[in-house]
Write a protein that binds this DNA or RNA. Structure first.
Lengths: 206, 206
DNA sequence: TAGATTAGCTTACAGCTGTACGCTCAATGC
DNA sequence: GCATTGAGCGTACAGCTGTAAGCTAATCTA
């Protein structure tokens, strides 16, 4: 078994296309501003050969969103393992998040930008990825802090919203400014956690 | 006083351009995807006449962001007046916000999209508009709830983040779904407010 | 080994883009 | 009244775009 020479070469070229697209992303360049020809050029491929791998740019983009979401979840899972060894869950999660942001900025860019983007399919794909985070987090809070489902869900949404918003801001920052931002984010997350707990108590005591 | 005929005509055409651009915005169409020629066409103007009013599309876009921010602030100020007549500040603010969203969706679209957009000038302009909200809100909380400046600021940022995030989600929703979203948002905002208060007390009691 | 498959190439084309240039002619200032 | 100004227009062009068509040559299949 194992892929034949042909399939291997094809996979390699496909990767070159995906990587080329990721590499062209920057603060000044969004996915939707990339042209098929630009990506093909960067991947050292004739424009028309692009079609051997993707139906159009849209299909490439969705592939990238899926891949990006996967990367993100893998990294955060590692962070959670680190948190289990002790320490503030919030702090460690934020630190992990910032590290991911630092090492994979372009994975982030496509998620952040296409979330408010112009294609319904893209928005849905990004929302699906974010939903993973929210429901994982909600489930965790519901179990560990004995939160009501509705409250746990609202809390998780708020936390993820604040984290992603901070992530967007951090993308264009120098390391020093990021530290301030991270501290501020931790403070906001604690607000939400504390507030959710207070609301929970109020619900129970009547 | 009183513009001459010439200046009046010019202003009218300029408005036609701005309005044409706003009208072309939709869930499927972002400002950066508009071409100069498209806007000129929609405004019933020759493409080259565009330059009599704006240096380029960028300048048009910045004008739109400024105008949008102004509209937004005016509407929210009216909401605040309504809140002074009594009732939950949070609830009334959220309702006002949803009304604005309903009547000026495209003002919102450009702010939301260009916030994570590809042009630094745009991002800065949007951030400036959002900063208005944050600092107004922080000032208000600092005074009325006797919050420490740092805490008040973090709280205000969190509130605005949650509201804008909900706004983005609400844009593509039907009225019924928006209601659910609004209720959920109110809950999250209360979490933040309650949590901020708890943190404040902790600071004072030691 | 002979024939079928297919990744990648070259060439080609129509459609769109931004914008340079120069004209017209109504409003303006003197 | 006459010269100046300037908003809007038409024409033109080079550069980009997505993609259709058909070829080549390496790999796969039987």
């Amino acid at each position: 078994m194992g892929m034949g020479i042909r399939a291997q070469q094809k996979e390699k070229t496909r990767r070159a296309l995906v990587d080329a697209a990721f590499n062209q992303l920057s603060a000044e360049r969004s996915f939707s501003s990339l042209s098929l020809r630009e990506v093909a050029r960067e991947a050292n491929i004739a424009p028309t050969s692009f079609y051997r791998h993707f139906k159009d740019m849209n299909e490439l983009g969705l592939t990238m969103v899926d891949e990006g979401g996967l990367t993100l979840r893998q990294m955060m899972r590692k962070g959670r393992q680190r948190a289990e060894a002790g320490g503030s869950v919030i702090r460690i999660s934020v630190d992990t998040f910032m590290e991911v942001l630092d090492s994979n900025p372009n994975v982030f860019r496509i998620l952040l930008h296409e979330r408010s983007g112009t294609s319904a399919a893209f928005r849905a794909a990004v929302e699906r990825e974010i939903e993973h985070f929210i429901s994982e987090l909600a489930h965790y809070t519901e179990a560990s802090a004995n939160r009501s489902p509705v409250l746990a869900r609202a809390q998780a949404e708020a936390l993820v919203t604040l984290v992603f918003n901070a992530g967007a801001a951090a993308l264009d920052m120098k390391r020093a400014d990021r530290k301030v931002l991270a501290d501020n984010l931790v403070m906001q997350l604690r607000m939400v956690a504390t507030g959710a707990e207070a609301l929970q108590r109020k619900l129970e005591h009547r």
